[in-house]
């Protein structure tokens, strides 16, 4: 892929990641009873960038999403949470992808789990209270569920995109 095309695609993916963040902000999943549960479709987009374009582009998509969310509907505390989640999950996904240890779904699950764990650690620091770790196990269960869903979706997307690219 040409570099200009890559950059253009990065922009599209960043917009998509931000749009998903915004939708998830508008439709909170609080009713489930565990605070902070999210499907994490933005992470799906970042993973797509990681697999299709590579780490620098994925980091750019993630950074744009985090900064835009902060400016448009976040606060400093939520910025810290999303930075922690974003940086650590991307790092873990990158390493696991490099090691070729898991399939797309496994990487997605690990990304989601890391995202939640990092956010809980951040909130423990912000609130200077360890009691938030109480929420981690139920959060992880949802992380696994949504991680699998996102992984399967991404797997399908990657296959289609590849077919498409070969078809040209």
């Amino acid at each position: 892929m040409k570099k200009t095309k890559k950059i253009a695609l990065t922009g599209v993916l960043a917009a998509a990641a931000f749009a998903f963040s915004y939708v998830e902000y508008l439709i909170p999943f609080d009713m489930i009873g565990v605070p902070g549960v999210k499907p994490g479709f933005a992470n799906l987009v970042i993973m797509a960038a990681l697999y299709m374009l590579g780490l620098p582009y994925a980091a750019a998509v993630s950074a744009v999403r985090i900064v835009l969310s902060f400016l448009l509907f976040g606060n400093v505390t939520s910025l810290i949470y999303s930075l922690a989640g974003g940086v650590f999950s991307l790092a873990v996904m990158f390493v696991l992808k490099k090691l070729n240890a898991f399939d797309v779904t496994g990487v997605s699950v690990c990304g989601a789990v890391t995202h939640n764990a990092a956010q809980i650690c951040a909130s423990a620091l912000v609130l200077s209270s360890g009691s938030v770790f109480y929420y981690l196990p139920p959060l992880l269960i949802f992380a696994v569920i949504f991680g699998v869903i996102n992984g399967v979706i991404l797997d399908l997307i990657l296959k289609r995109v590849k077919m498409n690219a070969q078809g040209r």
């Binding site: 950074a63 985090i66 400093v76 505390t77 910025l79 810290i80 930075l83 922690a84 940086v87 912000v126």
Partner: peptide, 20 residues
């Protein structure tokens, strides 16, 4: 560059101890 921007962000944010 992106990673260092993020790191700077984290540190400046922490220095101001945002929170509840």
């Amino acid at each position: 560059v992106i990673l260092s921007i993020i790191t700077v962000f984290i540190f400046t944010a922490c220095a101001k101890t945002p929170g509840r």
